[in-house]
Structures are given as C-alpha cells and as structure tokens.
Design a protein around this nucleic acid. Structure first.
Lengths: 145, 145
DNA sequence: CTCAATTGAATTGTGCGCAATACTTTAGGC
DNA sequence: GCCTAAAGTATTGCGCACAATTCAATTGAG
C-alpha cells in the first residue's frame, strides 16, 4: 500500500488511531459500571492509586497517572464533593495537599472488584492477548514512564 | 499477584490504563508536529479521512472515527474557520451537510506525510510490534469496528 | 536576615468526548 | 395533501486534558 519513502496516510493503517479508538472504547465499557458507583473513569483511576497508597500529594498522584494539577485539581474537588476523598494541607509544608480516602471512598474498593470482573467478561481478547496489549501500550508510552 | 476470584486492582496491572496512557502519549507526540500545521489530533484525523474520500457527510465522518455530531459539529466549525474545509447542505437532502476540502486543506496533505515520518522516528517500538499493537487495539475496540 | 528563585497547587482558557435535547428536513401511512 | 415518525445535524451541559499563568509557601545564596 505504501513504501518507506511515502508513508501511507490511510486512517485504518494508523497505530495511533487504533490506540485512540481503543482507549475510548475502554472508557465506554467502564462507563455503565462506574455510573453505578458515581465515578468517571479518571476518577476511578485516582481511587485505584489511593487504594494502593493513601495520603498522597496531588503531584504524586499526577506522576502515577501522568496528569497535571490542571486536570487533577477540579477532578479531586469533585471526588471530595462526592464524599470519597478528603484534602488537607500538609503540616510540614503547607504547599502540599494530602489526598486521603474517606470511609465511603475506602468502601468503594470492594464494589470496584466487581467492575473488574464484569469488564474482563465483556472483553473478547484472550488473556494472553490482553497482556500483550498492555505491555506494548506501556512500552509505547516510553522507555521509562 | 491475584487469582481469578479476586481480580487485582493495581494500577500498573490494568490494561485499560495502559491504553489510556498510550493514547495520550500518542497525542502528545503528535502535538508539536501538528501545531505547525495549526491542527489538533482529532482535526488531523478528520483530514485523514477527507484526504481519502472528500465530500462526506457529518454522519459518514462520524462512523469512520467513532464520533458523534456533538463532537464533530464544533470541530468542523473550527476546521472551517481555519480555512481547511467547507461545509454545504446537500442539494438532494438539505438535512445532510457535505464536508469537503478547500485548496488549503488539500495542500496540508503533503506536509502531513512529514508528520508521519517524524513520528515513526520518535517511536521506540519495532515495526512488527507497532503492527501487533495496532491489531490488538483494533480487536479490543470490537469484533465489529 | 533578606530577597530572589523554586516548588506545589490552583486557576484560566481552549478543545475534545459524550449524553441529552432541540430543530429542521424528509419519508410514509392514510 | 396531511400528519406523524424518522433521519441528520446542531446545541447544551458536564467532565476531562493540557498549556499558560498566578499565587502562596519554602528554600537558598549572600
């Protein structure tokens, strides 16, 4: 279809379009499940991090998710308004904002396990293919990320 | 780390987070290149489709890109404001809006080939891995897509 | 100690993505 | 022809992403 000298510009051949479509398809698969928890997908990702390690700063959350404060500040404000997290300035350095789970936020953890199960059932790829997709995607992000 | 009965909730193990991160990394790789053309990545995708087949309706564009009119209408308005496309109601059915390239939009096609070349150089994955990533992503989107 | 530089978070502005709604045009049933 | 239903697009509202800016708190050089 094309040579190295003339890269093809067909939509269907584009790796990045496939990634772009797959990422949105993933969010759409999550949406009905997360709706029941009152969460969006990025909010769910924040909780995934906090369930692993509570009490992180906004910057630390951003490093894990590759998001900056411009995205996280309003997102965390909504999570707080929904009662899932609390934010407080650190004593030692009042520039830092420590994000911690409320009991309600911690309680979501069990229900989130069901979300994972439902999603795995909906996916048509074989387990080994999912692992391959995950690892290729991670390496696409960068050698170190 | 986990069994089938208790799916793990670690961020780093999530396929969808890897996709989400990779898709955003792809857009960030495109951004500096597309900035020079005055395009965003979704706008670039629309032009990719039009370079293949000009004069499509909004719905036809949406089917190719998996986007609805809520996303495309303002995006096309901006592409039109920038002089890259024109929109006109179809004669046979004035509900349909035909989107067509202007000379300026058509001229971008050559410069876009350079964008592809720069991106391929920046990517660290081997060609075969890129194909694998593309095909797994497409199959993740759905058996039908 | 003082002041400039740096850090951490929030804010502002633009552009998606998507659900829900509205509006116009066309097609059908009669 | 008339009236209802359907199709095609646009609009509204909300929540990300991200660049750029702002602001307060801390650090460090002197």
């Amino acid at each position: 279809m094309s040579t190295a000298a003339t890269p093809n510009l067909h939509l269907e051949d584009q790796v990045c379009f496939a990634l772009y479509s797959a990422a949105r398809a993933a969010q759409q698969a999550y949406r009905p499940l997360l709706d029941e928890l009152g969460l969006t997908y990025p909010q769910y990702l924040v909780l995934l991090v906090l369930w692993e390690q509570d009490g992180l700063t906004v910057t630390a959350l951003g490093e894990r998710l590759h998001l900056d404060s411009g995205t996280l500040s309003p997102l965390l404000r909504r999570l707080e308004a929904h009662g899932f997290i609390a934010r407080e300035r650190a004593d030692v350095d009042s520039r830092r904002v420590l994000v911690s789970l409320t009991p309600a936020g911690d309680a979501l953890r069990e229900r989130a396990a069901d979300v994972q199960r439902c999603l795995l059932e909906a996916v048509t790829l074989a387990p080994a293919e999912l692992l391959a997709l995950r690892d290729l995607s991670r390496r696409f992000v960068g050698p170190e990320a």
